[in-house]
């Protein structure tokens, strides 16, 4: 993994990213991933529209259908049924897809940006900054993420999605940073960087103009893979009861199902959130693997 030495056709006029987009259209993995992702994107968009039908009943947090007694199965009014106090499960599921999308993408954007920047600087400047940053990365990688997050959640006493977002971003950057650094180390020795140095271009400019575009494909790969990690870890936290109680996420739906004792009684309550978590993270990972095949030439077909 240390040198994803992609050798896309550099002679072509098209930019690297454009080439990747073109190749991506041909990958089964990416097509499947994007297809699933779009379904969930649609769900996220549907959420506010669905609530507007009748906010008193369909609001995922406070809406209650008073005509329902106990948890009931799917019906025309409630496509996925209701929970034990008459809240619509479908609207909770839609809200969950919003939370998962926003949280997953934000975490991966922040942590990949952070990781790429740190990796580039550490790799390019080397010496003390490299040692310090990489040891910090090592320390963060050493500590198991889920237990650490549980402890941190306990520390804050109250939980919000913003805190989860920050912590996840902070714990996910080292993986990206390490790989980008390795890549930068090998790029640094290339002739075109050497010549740039000789011609007196500033270091920052070299990093931004010459190094960054070359490591971007790898950053893209980590961008998608981190989304998977973020979604799964957030769901795990919520499931264990350390999620944001003022909102509704898929992990939280499962947790409510668990604390209310409906796990083996109400499949319409238990199956959808878990399936959604798995499918969405699956779709992002598929895209990631598809990208890896394009970016890493050694995985190309014989």
């Amino acid at each position: 993994m240390e040198t994803l030495n992609y050798t896309l056709d550099k002679t072509e006029k098209k930019s690297l990213i454009r080439q990747i987009w073109d190749l991506a259209g041909r990958s089964t993995f990416i097509k499947l991933g994007v297809f699933i992702m779009l379904i969930f994107g649609g769900m996220a968009v549907l959420s506010p529209i669905w609530i507007q039908i009748n906010p008193a009943i369909y609001d995922p947090i406070i809406g209650v259908d008073l005509s329902v007694n106990g948890s009931v199965g799917p019906s025309f009014k409630h496509p996925l049924g209701t929970d034990d106090i008459g809240k619509d499960l479908f609207s909770q599921l839609l809200r969950g897809s919003q939370v998962a999308f926003i949280l997953g993408i934000m975490v991966s954007l922040i942590s990949t940006t952070l990781g790429t920047t740190i990796g580039l600087f550490a790799g390019y400047y080397g010496k003390i900054s490299d040692t310090l940053l990489m040891r910090l990365a090592d320390i963060i990688l050493t500590v198991p993420i889920l237990p650490l997050l549980i402890v941190i959640s306990g520390i804050f006493g109250t939980q919000s999605n913003w805190i989860i977002l920050l912590i996840l971003s902070f714990t996910f950057w080292p993986v990206t940073a390490r790989v980008i650094r390795a890549q930068t180390l090998s790029l640094r020795e290339r002739p075109f960087i050497e010549s740039a140095k000789v011609s007196g271009i500033s270091n920052t400019r070299i990093i931004v103009k010459h190094l960054a575009p070359n490591v971007l494909p790898i950053a893209f790969y980590y961008l998608t893979v981190t989304v998977t990690g973020a979604i799964l870890v957030e769901a795990g936290l919520s499931f264990l009861g350390f999620g944001d109680p003022s909102n509704m996420s898929w992990g939280m739906m499962l947790q409510w199902c668990f604390v209310k004792g409906y796990v083996f009684k109400a499949p319409y309550w238990m199956i959808p959130p878990g399936l959604c978590i798995s499918l969405l993270s699956f779709s992002f990972y598929l895209i990631g693997v598809g990208l890896e095949e394009i970016v890493n030439p050694r995985l190309k077909k014989r």
């Binding site: 238990m270 978590i277 699956f282 990972y285």
Partner: peptide, 22 residues
């Protein structure tokens, strides 16, 4: 096999556990 492996790798752990228990 790649898709199968990926699917299970990204499956939500407690959910799969509950399904198996069920």
């Amino acid at each position: 096999f790649v898709i199968l492996g990926l699917w299970f790798y990204t499956t939500f752990t407690p959910w799969l556990g509950i399904m198996f228990l069920w």
